[in-house]
Structure formats: structure tokens, C-alpha cells
Design a protein around this nucleic acid. Structure first.
Length: 195
DNA sequence: ACTCCGATTGGCT
DNA sequence: GCCAATCGGAGTA
């Protein structure tokens, strides 16, 4: 059903201004291999966090045990526990020394949907991956994958299938004073989180 | 040491 | 719309 020729994203894709990385991640395929299965989702919503100038970023106040991955190279998985319950997947961006990350906020389920439904415990396609905490559960992405190099790993990586025919929308992130629009989504897509 | 808050979600009123 | 679940980090003392 799905083409096997994936163009995997390399280091140079990730080590750029995080806002551009975020925008360019829209439409890309997030691929997860687990238990001999392949789970695929199309990235439809993202959010950029720049440690140096974003007070809401984990890295804004310096390096800690939790956020240290953000200070490493671009193209790594930064996964952390939110509200003590949900695992959130980020992709680190920008070169070493410039802490930044892009939160993957929603996917459109593409392949391995039955398995995702089993992992999520629901058959509701709409609710399967339409949120940052939901998609990690659907793809069984846990804290053990924190720090994984997405340019090298076969367990988890991002690929470009060349499909770019969509319109991008943006919305101001809640809680940020200057209202910078660092949240991006594919317009009209039914799998974005609470539109 | 103690308190508050958050890059969330699902269930209940 | 409200709220609990549950943990790391930051601010206060």
C-alpha cells in the first residue's frame, strides 16, 4: 500500500532555525518500527521551541537532567513525561549549543492503523493520533527512546515522501506574551488537535 | 522542605 | 466547562 522508497531526513535538515524545521516537518512521515511491524503517520501539526528566546521552552533557563538532549545535536528524539502521565515527542533542532526542539503535536494515521488502535485502546480513527500525548501512545514511543538519533535509528525516524500539496496554517501559542506564531498545522486536515 | 505550575487527556457535570 | 491524574523543575524559605 505504501511506497517503500523513503527519503530519510539527515542532520542538515534538523540543524537549522527551529521555526523553519517545524514548518518543513509538516507533511513528512513519522515511521516507527516495533514488534516486526511498521507504523506510519503523516505529521500534520508541530510547534517550535527555541531555548534562547522562548520563556516557555524547557531549555530557556539552562541545562537540566531532563532537557540535556536539547543542548546536543539536531535530529535527536527529545521525549519527556508531561503532567506525570503523557510522553511527548520532540525533535531537536539547530546546531550543538543552540538548544531548540520541535514538538510533534498530531499525525494523520497512514499505515499500521490496527496496531495503533490496539496500543491506544480505541477504534476511533479521529482520536487515534490527534494530540501529542495520543500519538506517542499509538506508536508506543516511550522514554526509553529519549536521545535516539533519528538520522540513524531504524526504530524511529522521519522521511520525506515528496508529497507537499497542502496549505499551512499557524496559530499563536497560548501563554506567550509576544504572540509569536510558532505553531503550525496543515489546514483543513481532520487530525489536528482541537482545531 | 513545601508549593505551584505545566508543550495533556479523558471522563463527568 | 471542570477536574483529576502524577511528576520534574522552579521559586520561595
Amino acid at each position: 500500500m505504501l511506497r517503500m522508497m523513503f527519503k530519510r531526513l539527515g542532520r542538515d535538515f534538523y540543524e537549522r532555525w527551529a521555526v523553519d524545521v517545524a514548518k518543513d516537518l509538516l507533511g513528512k512521515l513519522l515511521i516507527r518500527r516495533i514488534d516486526g511491524r511498521v507504523l506510519v503517520g503523516r505529521i500534520v501539526e508541530v510547534e517550535a521551541y527555541r531555548g534562547s528566546d522562548d520563556p516557555a521552552s524547557h531549555a530557556y533557563r539552562g541545562k537540566t537532567e531532563r532537557n540535556k538532549i536539547m543542548f546536543d545535536r539536531g535530529g535527536l528524539a527529545y521525549i519527556y513525561l508531561a503532567y506525570g502521565i503523557h510522553r511527548l515527542l520532540n525533535v531537536t533542532a539547530e546546531p550543538p549549543g543552540r538548544p531548540a526542539a520541535v514538538l510533534i503535536r498530531a499525525l494523520e494515521p497512514i499505515d499500521g492503523i490496527e496496531t495503533m488502535m490496539r496500543f491506544r485502546g480505541t477504534s476511533d480513527l479521529r482520536a487515534l493520533t490527534s494530540g501529542p500525548g495520543k500519538l506517542t501512545e499509538a506508536l508506543k514511543i516511550g522514554l526509553e527512546l529519549n536521545g535516539l538519533d533519528l538520522t540513524m535509528s531504524d526504530e524511529l525516524f522521519i522521511a520525506d515522501d515528496g508529497f507537499k500539496d497542502f496549505e499551512m496554517g499557524s496559530s499563536p501559542r497560548i501563554g506567550v506574551r509576544d504572540r509569536r506564531k510558532w505553531r503550525f498545522y496543515i489546514k483543513g486536515n481532520g487530525f489536528v488537535s482541537r482545531p
